[in-house]
């Protein structure tokens, strides 16, 4: 089943602007994470595991018709689940070109969450973005 999230990235950005301190932001992020449907057991396998030594992250990207990508992801950590929701709102059901043209780090910076996307954090998020972009890049290289 495809992941549907009853919100948009614009809404999330707007909501974040109204939130005061980091505790409110994290509480919101945890709530967002709770909306993420759990990945099925068959997808939580080594093949779909993303490198990140502090939490486990799984990512499955399925190319669909019209060069659209369907993304499934999950984590065992709540904050990471919330961050995954933000990433899905940015990249899910987008074309390879849209994926490559979108700089998620700018959006994370806008949300004040940029340090959680940094490769030094090793929570799997950075590797997740790299993998999504690499798949999009492969598809574009193959076509041209």
């Amino acid at each position: 089943m495809a992941i549907t999230l009853d919100t948009t990235i614009e809404e999330v950005i707007e909501n974040f602007e109204f939130l005061g301190d980091w505790e409110e932001k994290f509480t919101y992020l945890i709530e967002l994470g709770k909306k993420l449907p759990a990945l099925s057991d068959k997808d939580m396998i080594e093949q779909y595991r993303v490198q990140g030594c502090q939490a486990s992250v799984w990512l499955r990207v399925i190319p669909k018709k019209n060069d659209i990508y369907e993304i499934y992801a999950d984590s065992d950590a709540f904050i990471v689940k919330g961050l995954i929701v933000v990433l899905l709102l940015i990249y899910n059901y987008k074309t390879a070109k849209q994926i490559l043209d979108t700089d998620s780090s700018k959006i994370f910076e806008q949300l004040g969450l940029d340090k959680h996307l940094s490769p030094t954090r090793r929570n799997g998020l950075h590797s997740m973005v790299s993998r999504i972009k690499a798949l999009a890049n492969d598809s574009i290289t193959k076509v041209s």
């Binding site: 980091w22 505790e23 994290f26 945890i30 030594c53 502090q54 939490a55 065992d76 950590a77 709540f78 904050i79 990471v80 959680h116 090793r122 929570n123």
Partner: peptide, 20 residues
């Protein structure tokens, strides 16, 4: 709470612990 959640929150309060 996952260890990473805990360490991330603790960090916001200036507490350095390890998760992983």
């Amino acid at each position: 709470a996952h260890a990473l959640d805990l360490a991330t929150m603790a960090d916001q309060k200036g507490i350095a612990i390890r998760a992983g």
